[in-house]
Design a protein around this nucleic acid. Structure first.
Length: 125
DNA sequence: TAACGGGTGCGTCACAAGCA
DNA sequence: TGCTTGTGACGCACCCGTTA
């Protein structure tokens, strides 16, 4: 069975700061049920149409509202995931730097200890 | 040169935790 | 209690080095 999901209408004009590779991954799709591809709306990404809940009546309007909410949630989550990865990467880099510093420090201390031992031994003689 | 495997980044889902 | 946000997990696409 074909996995049909395309990355949400990729119009992510929103900065997209980090150099995105040339591809836009399509996603998962191992759960057949929930991938309801919304009919292509003409709305630019990120634009929220104000529709007061009380004004929704017809099934079509309800469906459109649901679709809109879903797209919005996906968009926010996409951003959140990016941010989360960025922070994680930063954290790992930070840890790596710390490791380097501590290793250097350790080396220095070992050498210092060795020198002191030598000194002590020669004095004892 | 095609096939393959490892590495990386992305989007999405599910879920937990925090908040109003 | 419903909503929002952060994050782990998963599958996918792409890139690149290696090997037959």
């Amino acid at each position: 069975m074909q996995k049909t999901i395309m990355a949400v209408t990729g119009d992510e004009t929103d900065e997209d700061t980090e150099l995105a590779p040339s591809h836009m991954a399509a996603a998962t799709g191992d759960m057949p049920t929930y991938q309801i591809r919304a009919p292509p709306t003409s709305l630019p990404q990120g634009v929220v149409v104000a529709a007061s809940p009380g004004s929704l009546h017809s099934p079509q309007q309800l469906a459109e509202e649901a679709t809109r909410k879903r797209e919005l949630r996906l968009m926010k989550n996409r951003e959140a995931a990016r941010e989360c990865r960025r922070k994680k990467k930063e954290y790992v880099t930070c840890l790596e730097n710390r490791v380097a510093v501590l290793e250097k420090q350790n080396k220095t201390l070992i050498e210092e200890l060795k020198a002191l031992k030598d000194l002590y031994c020669h004095k004892a003689e």
